[in-house]
């Protein structure tokens, strides 16, 4: 039976929006933690660490997110981890985010003038103090706008979880579209929900980009 597009359908889509937000948050926090490690490896003094992290970043930037999700989804059971779609997608997106955030923050760290970390060394600060108190606070400010920009990409990227069958915003729109046979409204509404999340973030990113832009 074809159902009408009623309150229940709208609620289904809104519920999906909530899942999308949760998934994005998990991936962003996880990606942030590993991304910090990637950025620090990328700027480390050890050559092999720099090369490994560069290869890691290249791999994630040179292959489609969909393939990365498939690899995690089909790969984890091969190694004996039988996890839910939710966990697989969260892990896949975390890897993806860590590579991109790592590259963004590497840029931020390297944009901090060298004299800063040299001065910190001269004051007798060790690596951890130097990073935590001198370099990273400035790097964070410099890379704030691109980080928020990537968050928009990440929110949009979570939609690919729908292809694996994980029920988030896009998948709920798909379900609603097929039960009501009103794909135009269902996908239109889903698009509007994504827009409601992403547009404010894009504005914030653009605002800080202007604010922190080098004066010309």
């Amino acid at each position: 039976m074809i159902r009408d597009f009623g309150l229940l359908e709208v609620l289904t889509i809104l519920q999906g929006m909530w899942t999308t937000l949760a998934l994005s948050a998990v991936a962003f926090v996880g990606g942030g933690i590993f991304g910090t490690l990637v950025a620090l490896s990328r700027t480390s003094a050890w050559t092999w660490l720099r090369i490994t992290s560069a290869a890691y970043i290249d791999f994630f930037q040179g292959t489609p997110l969909l393939m990365q999700l498939f690899l995690v989804y089909f790969g984890l059971p091969v190694f004996g981890f039988h996890v839910s779609a939710w966990t697989a997608v969260a892990i896949g997106l975390t890897f993806h985010a860590s590579a991109f955030l790592g590259e963004i923050w590497r840029g931020g760290i390297q944009a901090v003038p060298r004299g800063q970390s040299e001065a910190a060394s001269a004051l007798g600060l060790g690596y951890i103090d130097r990073m935590r108190d001198v370099v990273l606070p400035q790097a964070i400010k410099l890379s704030f706008a691109p980080t928020v920009g990537f968050l928009v990409q990440l929110v949009k990227g979570t939609s690919l979880a729908a292809i694996i069958g994980f029920v988030e915003l896009s998948r709920s729109a798909q379900i609603v579209a097929s039960t009501t046979y009103k794909p135009l409204i269902a996908y239109g509404l889903a698009g509007a929900c994504y827009f409601a999340i992403c547009f404010p973030l894009s504005r914030v990113s653009a605002y800080y980009e202007r604010r922190f832009a080098p004066k010309t």
Binding site: S159, I163, S170, Q174, A177, P183, Y187, F195, C198, S202
Partner: peptide
């Protein structure tokens, strides 16, 4: 276009 996922655009 920039603030909605490509998947939703394709489906639409």
């Amino acid at each position: 276009i920039r603030n909605t996922p490509f998947l939703v655009q394709v489906f639409f």
